[in-house]
């Protein structure tokens, strides 16, 4: 009961925070950054389900992000189909690809799984680049239309901000639901010991495949939102380094934590903005921060910050206790 209450409070706080942000922030630049954080959060959420809960690493997740973006771009621009129908196709396409690829790939484990997904990501990226008659090739795909719903036109600024964070909220609720279900418990059992969970009757392969397809769907939704936000996509935005960035977001935020995904996405989106002023030294400082966070907060920022808070709390109450004693 108290668990449910806590989740309810968390969700309410989240909605209030989003509405407050949306109402108080007027500057399009800041709104745009928070919108990017939202898109990255979707990516991190999906990957976090796969990595944090099921314990399966994917180094090619940017492929699904790209599939979502390119599907909607091609359908809505080249064929003039409504973007909302394109969204359904994008998600369906990503899930289908995840099924075909996941079937053999998820039988691998550890670094081999990393290698398998990496290879998949590279192949998809090469397709984006080389199939230039359809995808526009390396120069990119121009002229993606804006999203429209009835009389609302979603453009950079408040309307898009609310759209993205609304989607993030729904995604968080769905993730929570999955985790609280039988499936969620089975997932965690895979993370802790695949053989043991197999022994108690969990069909681990199907389960891994399902969660892989789910995270692919989230990735493709993020790609859809990205494509209609920037209105231009190119293969560079979905390359290997983006996959690595996604893994970094999950790990640095804190694995197996929904809020960790938001934290990780925020850090990796905001850091480059803040570091702009360092110019040439940006890379050095970015690398250093990544290393330092991982060395001193191996469980990620969520756990690390809680630790620091609890520690300072404890030491404060501890010192109080000492004062009492001396009195």
């Amino acid at each position: 009961m108290s668990q449910q209450k806590r989740i309810f409070i968390e969700h309410t706080l989240f909605i209030i925070a989003v509405i407050l942000c949306g109402l108080l922030i007027e500057n399009t630049y800041y709104l745009q950054i928070i919108t990017f954080i939202g898109i990255n959060t979707l990516l991190a959420l999906g990957l976090n389900m796969l990595m944090g809960y099921a314990g399966q690493v994917s180094l090619g997740h940017a492929a699904f992000y790209g599939i979502g973006a390119y599907t909607t771009a091609i359908l809505s621009t080249t064929f003039g189909i409504s973007p909302w129908i394109a969204l359904v196709c994008a998600v369906g396409g990503a899930i289908f690809v995840a099924f075909i690829v996941g079937l053999p790939t998820l039988k691998l484990s550890g670094y081999y799984l990393g290698m398998g997904t990496l290879g998949f990501g590279m192949i998809v990226n090469i397709i984006f680049r080389e199939w230039s008659s359809v995808t526009g090739g390396s120069s990119g795909f121009v002229g993606i239309p804006m999203l429209e719903l009835g009389s609302i036109l979603f453009e950079a600024g408040k309307s898009y901000f609310f759209l993205v964070w609304g989607v993030v909220f729904v995604a968080i609720v769905i993730c929570r639901r999955i985790l609280a279900s039988r499936m969620g418990r089975a997932l965690r059992s895979i993370h802790d010991g695949e053989n043991a969970s197999m022994a108690v009757g969990v069909n681990t392969h199907i389960l891994k495949l399902q969660i892989f397809m789910f995270s692919a769907a989230l990735g493709s939704i993020a790609g859809f939102l990205y494509a209609h936000f920037v209105m231009f996509i190119s293969p560079d935005s979905f390359g290997f380094m983006v996959s690595v960035k996604m893994v970094t977001m999950v790990v640095i935020g804190g694995m197996a934590s929904v809020w960790g995904a938001i934290l990780g996405a925020s850090l990796l989106t905001l850091l480059p903005e803040v570091l702009h002023s360092f110019q040439e030294y940006e890379m050095i400082i970015f690398g250093l921060i990544l290393m330092i966070v991982m060395i001193f907060m191996p469980q990620g920022l969520t756990r690390g910050l809680i630790d620091i808070y609890e520690h300072s709390h404890k030491s404060r109450s501890g010192s109080k206790a000492n004062i009492k004693k001396t009195n």
Binding site: N27, T28, Y29, Q32, I33, F36, V230, S234, S237, H276
Partner: peptide, 14 residues
């Protein structure tokens, strides 16, 4: 491209 978009919004609105 994503960094360019971010930069242009900064220039335009900030």
């Amino acid at each position: 491209p994503a960094k360019a978009v971010s930069a242009v919004n900064k220039l335009l609105h900030k």
